[in-house]
Simulated assay, not measured.
Amino acid sequence: MIATCSSLVTGIPVAWLGQSAPGGLIVAPTATLFGGGAIARLRVDHGGQSASGHFTGASDFMRMRQQRYQAPPVDAYLPGDWPGDARPSVSGLDLEAIGDSWLAQFAIGTRLPDLYYRRAPYGDTVTWWFFDTAVTSWATVDSVPGADEFDVRQSGPRRLWDEIHTAWNAWQQAGRPGYERFGLTMTAAGKRTVWLDDPNHHWSPPAH
C-alpha cells in the first residue's frame, strides 16, 4: 500500500493494516505537529495485527484533511497580557538550530507528539511560541542573533521548553541519528510507537 498524502506519525490509519496483505508493505509519508516529516516503510505481520519498520528519509506531503490541526488562538492559553504568570529563565540553545533542521524537528516531534510551535519575528528578534494540544501550557524563547543566552518564559503545569530541550539533548547524545535509525510500530489496537534502532528501544511513549 502506498499513500500519497501525509498523516501524523501517531495517526497512520489502523484500517490500513486490514487493507494490506499479510507480509505486505505500507509506505506512507508522515509528519509531526512540531515539524519534520519522513517516509515510513512498514511490514505487516502475517496475522495482520501489527506493522513495523524503519523510516527511509525526509518527506513533505500534503496532510490528510482530517489530520490538519486547527490550533486555538493564543488567548486560549494566555488570557490577559503577556507574560501573565510565566516564569522567566534563560537558555543557551538558539532555537534557530532547531528551526533550520527538518531532522531535529522530526526527532523532537516524535518524542513530544502533542507539541507545536509558531515563530513571530520582531525586527532582528524571533520569538518562538510553544503550545500543547491540551491547551494547558505554553512557553516562549527569544532568538536574538549573536546572543549567548536567550530569554525564556514558561507557563502552565508543564515546562514545555524544558521538555523540548531535553528531547534535543537526547537526540544529540544519541549521535544526531538520521531518519533511517528511527522506526515505527503500529498495532490493530491503535497503539503507535516510535523507536530508535530497535523496536524495543522506545524513542517516544506509545501513542493512541
Rank of each mutant, 00 (worst) to 15 (best):
C5Q: 08
S7W: 02
T10V: 14
I12F: 01
V14N: 01
V14T: 15
W16P: 00
L17C: 07
G18A: 15
G18D: 13
P22F: 04
P22Q: 07
G23I: 07
G24Q: 03
L25Q: 12
L25K: 10
L25N: 05
I26W: 00
I26A: 07
I26T: 03
V27C: 10
V27Y: 02
V27M: 07
T30Y: 01
T32W: 09
T32G: 08
G36C: 08
G37D: 00
A38L: 10
A38Y: 05
R41Y: 02
R41Q: 14
V44W: 01
D45G: 09
G47D: 13
G47I: 01
G48Y: 01
S52K: 05
F55G: 02
F55V: 03
A58Q: 13
S59Y: 04
D60V: 05
F61M: 10
R63N: 05
Q66K: 08
A71P: 12
A71D: 07
P73V: 13
V74N: 02
D75V: 13
A76I: 06
A76C: 14
A76H: 14
Y77P: 04
Y77E: 02
P79L: 13
G80S: 10
G80W: 05
G80T: 04
G80R: 09
D81C: 06
D81A: 15
W82P: 00
G84L: 00
P88Q: 09
S89P: 03
S89C: 12
S91C: 12
S91N: 12
D94P: 02
L95S: 08
L95M: 14
E96P: 00
D100F: 10
A104P: 01
A104S: 14
Q105Y: 04
I108K: 07
P113E: 01
L115E: 00
L115A: 03
R118C: 03
A120S: 12
A120Y: 12
P121E: 03
P121S: 04
Y122H: 09
T125E: 09
V126H: 00
W128Y: 14
W128G: 00
F130N: 00
F131A: 04
D132M: 11
D132A: 12
D132E: 11
A134C: 06
A139L: 13
S143E: 04
V144F: 06
V144K: 11
F150N: 01
V152F: 04
V152R: 01
R159W: 07
R159N: 15
L160D: 06
D162T: 15
D162G: 09
I164A: 11
T166S: 15
W168Q: 11
N169Q: 15
A170F: 09
Q173F: 09
G175L: 10
G175Q: 07
R176S: 14
P177N: 06
P177R: 08
G178F: 05
G178W: 01
R181F: 06
L184T: 03
T185N: 05
T185G: 03
M186C: 07
A189F: 08
G190R: 05
R192C: 00
T193R: 03
V194L: 11
W195P: 10
W195Q: 12
D197G: 04
D198T: 13
H201V: 14
H202A: 15
W203M: 09
P205V: 11
P206D: 07
